[in-house]
Design a protein around this nucleic acid. Sequence first.
DNA 1: GCCAACGTTGGC
DNA 2: GCCAACGTTGGC
Length: 153
Amino acid sequence: MWLMKSEPEEFSIDALARVAREPWSGVRNYQARNYMRDGMQVGDKVLFYHSNCARPGVAGIAEVASAAYPDPTQFDPDSAYYDPKSTPANPRWLLVDIRFVRRCKHVITLDAIRNAAEQLGDLALIRRGNRLSVMPVTPAQYHHILSLEHDSP
DNA sequence: GCCAACGTTGGC
DNA sequence: GCCAACGTTGGC
């Protein structure tokens, strides 16, 4: 199971709900890429996290909808994610498609997740200075985070 | 908008 | 292979 960050002004859980399915383009971090390439299986559940916004936190659930394949934006000179050092023959960046599952009833805030740190154990999201945008979560962490959804907002 | 923390780049 | 400089992330 996974957690993936997105800036809601760029691409929110509501935007995912509208399109139903989306290629997760733009990841330009090797560790995040490796998780998508080597770790993800179709059907894996994903906590959809809103970052860099007024209420950072888990806003919904998605699932992995494809195997990893080259991110087309890396070859597009007009894209903000263009990478001139990558070639179609030897692509540097891979992505997976993500499918909408559901919204959270309310955002499970970073604050609430931090408050549960003791029960959650080691979680990359709340490690100091963490900036990773794609990270694994254990089933226990996944379920514990979602259990916080029933708490008051 | 600020800034701490981090990853990447590139000169040496 | 080191490491300083730089750019980015993301909470606040």
